[in-house]
């Protein structure tokens, strides 16, 4: 499968995750979100940024528990809940946010 962003044709897996992390840029995330009727704001970007950094360091997607704790630290405790994350990413912070961030589909328990 492919995803076309600004004239670039990018390879994805059948569920829409990028095959190559290096294909990712912000336009890719925006295009994926727009297809789900989501307009990315700074709250979304904060989560995507964290996911990218975590993946780069550990080659793994973080579990939701780690994600919520990190968001609480950065944005305040009211935002560090899985309810907050589900409001941003209704299909699940793990799957949807990882996809927007260009990560492969999480295989670990997240």
């Amino acid at each position: 499968m492919t995803l076309t962003v600004e004239g670039r044709v990018l390879e994805t897996d059948p569920e829409g995750y990028l095959r190559r992390l290096e294909d990712w840029d912000e336009d890719v995330a925006r295009a994926m979100a727009r297809a789900d009727d989501i307009e990315l704001d700074e709250n979304h970007w904060e989560v995507l940024q964290f996911l990218k950094e975590y993946y780069e360091q550990y080659q793994l997607a973080p579990p939701v528990r780690v994600l919520t704790r990190a968001i609480a630290k950065r944005l305040g405790r009211d935002k560090g809940s899985s309810r907050y994350l589900y409001r941003l990413f209704p299909d699940g912070p793990a799957k949807q946010a990882c996809r927007y961030a260009g990560l492969p589909k999480p295989t670990n328990c997240i």
């Binding site: 550990y58 080659q59 793994l60």
Partner: peptide, 13 residues
């Protein structure tokens, strides 16, 4: 894949 990069994440857990 460089899965061994995941070991240092154990401290987070």
């Amino acid at each position: 894949k460089n899965f061994c990069a995941g070991f240092p994440s154990l401290g987070i857990y």
